[in-house]
Amino acid sequence: MQTEIIIAGFGGQGALFAGQVLAYAAMDSGHQVTWIPSYGPEMRGGTANCTVIIADEEIGSPLVLNPKAAIVLNLPSLDKYEPLVVPGGVLVVNTSLVNRTAQRTDIENVFIPVNEIAEELGNRRLLNMVALGALLAKLPVLSLDEVEKGLVDHLPERHKRLLEVNKLALHRGAEYALQAVT
């Protein structure tokens, strides 16, 4: 059994870091895990995405065509990944930057304005954790507690003061996803 998650957005939205938090948490909880970014020349304003695979046996390909879930933080990412999520999978859509609804009806869609929620929490950059919380509410591959622990143990030292609010962001995202009519 393995679970594949793609997190995609503009550079600077924290897609890669959200994936790493997931990967750390998976590792600490005793799972096999891979994290792989799309990489390109060091240029501003590009897209950034990563694929995280969590499994209980040796992971073959670190990349998949059809992930179990995707978090899309902008419109180009929605256009790209919406058709690829496997039937029955989960798609978290950042409605702060996406102005259309999803077309798939055979997957679970979570529409969540992560930018606004992050701003309410006082820091725009928390949007990735809000989105991650929303995903985990619908795809319990890891518990929120496990991911929190991943944050505690692996948030870079210079960001440690943001720990509590990061945790809060995860929970706020999860709550929103559970309340939202999807």
Binding site: A23, M27, V33, W35, I36, I59, L63
Partner: peptide
């Protein structure tokens, strides 16, 4: 290759 260079694994 680039995949192994850029990938993170435990």
């Amino acid at each position: 290759d680039g995949n192994i260079g850029q990938m993170m694994e435990p």
